[in-house]
Design a protein around this nucleic acid. Sequence first.
DNA 1: CTTGAATATACCTTGACACGTATATGCTCT
DNA 2: AGAGCATATACGTGTCAAGGTATATTCAAG
Lengths: 127, 127
Amino acid sequence: MESAFEIIAEPNRRAILSLLVSSQQSVGEIERQLRMPQPTVSKHLRVLREAGFVESTVDAQRRIYRLKPEPLQEVDAWLAPFRRFWSAHVDALERYLDRMDQSTPTKSKTKRGRRGPNRERDKGETK
Amino acid sequence: MESAFEIIAEPNRRAILSLLVSSQQSVGEIERQLRMPQPTVSKHLRVLREAGFVESTVDAQRRIYRLKPEPLQEVDAWLAPFRRFWSAHVDALERYLDRMDQSTPTKSKTKRGRRGPNRERDKGETK
DNA sequence: CTTGAATATACCTTGACACGTATATGCTCT
DNA sequence: AGAGCATATACGTGTCAAGGTATATTCAAG
């Protein structure tokens, strides 16, 4: 387990988190809305709690669970470099589509573009 | 496997993706930079390829792998509602701390002046 | 055609984890 | 104190994925 990524790999746990994002919920409410057996809910909540995704407060026999932001923010942070990547990628695609759009069909066929924006760097590869 | 979340749950796969975000790489380059055995790299690349995270082109005996954006964008999209939650959460924490300020005389807390777009998120279903 | 490099795949073993069922704990109310 | 609800935990089981080692495939060059 350990890492936030492994925690959210489980579909039921993602469902629980998505449920909690709108408002806090008791175990029974989660159980009913997601139609999953109660021990399953409790066990997933335990995993989520120990990983810091949720916290619980006691209300008589009920436990109210609510979301905590940090672990998902960590996931979000890991994603940041890729966001930069795919905006660049969209730009390249747009330029490509623009050229496709305005090029007349009689134009010479497009050369196979092996080179992207990134030059690969040779590092003394055995050849 | 199936879901993008399960794919990126694996640390080695995340490392490969992080490596590819800067530029495309051959299998051998990945193998050396991440210091992992070649079959391991190939197997993870296979998983990533079949899940649409990467694509490969052939260059003689080499295979050059590069990133594809869609699956990570899907993860990013799932994260969107939680991003909204975070900003709201900061507001709620501030209000909570403000009340703590007035109701618990033994604690001295620094008051914070930060505030964003005022969202009302409290539905008051707590009994 | 043989050799060697680069990459992929097959097979096996091991460990983690999700689930179901049963039971324990804890709280409220009468 | 006892009944009943809400939640947690213990235990046994099956599945699946990751790693290691060995081998197969593909290509280039001599």
